[in-house]
Amino acid sequence: MIPQDQTAIREVSITLPVRDDQLNSLQLGDAVFLNGMVFTGREGLYHMIFEKKAEPPIDIRTLGGATFHCSPAINESSPGIYHVPSVTATASFRFAKYMPEFLSRYNIHFVIGKGGMSSRVYKESFVPNRTIYLTTVGYGLGAIYGKGIVGVKDVAWKKELGLAQAIWVLEVNHFGPFMVECDARGNSLFEQGNDEINKKFLPLYEGLPIPALKRLGEVTSPAQEVV
């Protein structure tokens, strides 16, 4: 599945909302560029919806079906006038528990973020909802992603959640690249990479002692993931 030759990264442009045949055709490792509307959300959004049982004041069902785990660097030059020069994702694994309900209730087909989730989460909640996970590339490409943001269309819960956690509705054009980490079948690009890496990585432990002082912990083997 992982492309092997030097020129294999395929770049794909998609206008939101995405068509079903486009979802099916996306392959692990494809670089996707989005056009249309994307809304942001992280701890604050999930807390409001799932802990405080509040409905967002914006109808996020009809925005195009793409959500982004991030908070943009926002410049408010005068009240209500926003400029977004840069945007970078935040790690998505923390939001995995909200996905089954969130994806179906709000009609989400692209989750954009950092680092993905496990293929178990993908198979249980992404595949049934026809949702693809797109990971940002390198994670620190704020300036490139900022270039794809045409403007701020709307903002919600700014007062309740602050600038960093508010829901920002961004109008985007050639917004990317985002890499397909979970395809329509729920495969994970990262997990496939790990299988390959482990063959080289795990033998490096040979001959190195277990630390004299142990610690309680959930992860007991370097082959296991911490997320």
């Binding site: 840069s86 970078t88 390198g138 620190g140 704020g142 300036a143 900022g146 270039k147």
Partner: peptide
């Protein structure tokens, strides 16, 4: 690319 874009556009190289 991002390093160059940040300098050209005077944008933070990473939004975090």
């Amino acid at each position: 690319d991002n390093y160059e874009t940040a300098i050209k556009d005077r944008s933070p190289m990473c939004a975090d």
